[in-house]
């Protein structure tokens, strides 16, 4: 465990908590893509099946449980409790265009052709693109609430910190996982445009709105 990995995990946790709190406090999930949140719930479910097969550390197990529980709570708030505030008309990204190719790719390119390994690979590939429905929704409405941009910032920062963590681990531990690294690079690149807007607009106190 190095500092980049730890801050990456905490950044990921911060993002998840920010989103949950935003929905809970405002009693509304306006501007949030339920589809992205469904995909993240699917990502955590398929990745953390090893909770049943192996124990790594108390930290590892508790973080996994927290991530899974929070992602399901978020989906519940969006699709059940605050369904009336869900902006489904703008959440029109076709998730099958992500899930089907990612499913196929995880069968073709994986470390080991076994059910758990394929599901883990699927979750890695899916996570890298799971934010697309949310970014699509923002580009469609042309704006995002500031709190939503904080959520996206921490979510993007998490994978960027993981990239530094992987460089660190490659040099100091000889650890290298090509699938995770390539997916992580793709995932981080998807946030670059948003990072630019976040720094140039949100951090200067302006609302994130895109030119028409």
């Amino acid at each position: 465990m190095n500092i980049f990995r730890l801050t990456g995990d905490l950044s990921h946790l911060a993002a998840i908590i920010i989103l949950l709190l935003k929905i809970w406090k405002t009693r509304s999930c306006a501007g949030i893509s339920g589809k992205s949140q469904l995909l993240f719930a699917l990502v955590f479910t398929t990745r953390y099946l090893d909770l049943f097969t192996s124990f790594i550390s108390l930290y590892n197990t508790s973080m996994k449980l927290i991530y899974v529980a929070c992602s399901y709570a978020t989906v519940y708030l969006i699709y059940m409790k605050f369904k009336a505030t869900y902006d489904g008309n703008h959440d029109t990204f076709r998730v099958e265009f992500l899930v089907v190719p990612v499913g196929g790719l995880s069968f073709l390119v994986n470390h080991d052709f076994s059910p758990l390994e394929i599901l883990w690979t699927f979750s890695i590939y899916l996570e890298s693109v799971a934010i697309l429905p949310q970014l699509f929704m923002i580009s469609k409405t042309g704006e995002a609430e500031t709190i939503t941009t904080h959520y996206l910032f921490f979510l993007g920062l998490y994978r960027a910190l993981y990239l530094i963590n992987w460089i660190w681990r490659y040099y100091f531990e000889g650890f290298f996982d090509l699938i995770a690294v390539v997916a992580g690079v793709v995932q981080t690149i998807l946030y670059c445009d948003f990072f630019y807007l976040y720094v140039t607009k949100v951090l200067k106190g302006k609302k994130l709105s895109l030119p028409a």
């Binding site: 990995r5 995990d9 990921h12 090893d50 192996s54 790594i56 550390s57 590892n60 973080m63 996994k64 991530y67 470390h111 080991d112 390994e117 883990w120 993981y162 531990e173 000889g174 650890f175 290298f176 996982d177 090509l178 995770a180």
Partner: peptide, 10 residues
């Protein structure tokens, strides 16, 4: 050495 498939990350 290069180690593959280590699932200690989240």
């Amino acid at each position: 050495k290069i180690i593959l498939k280590q699932k200690d990350e989240l």
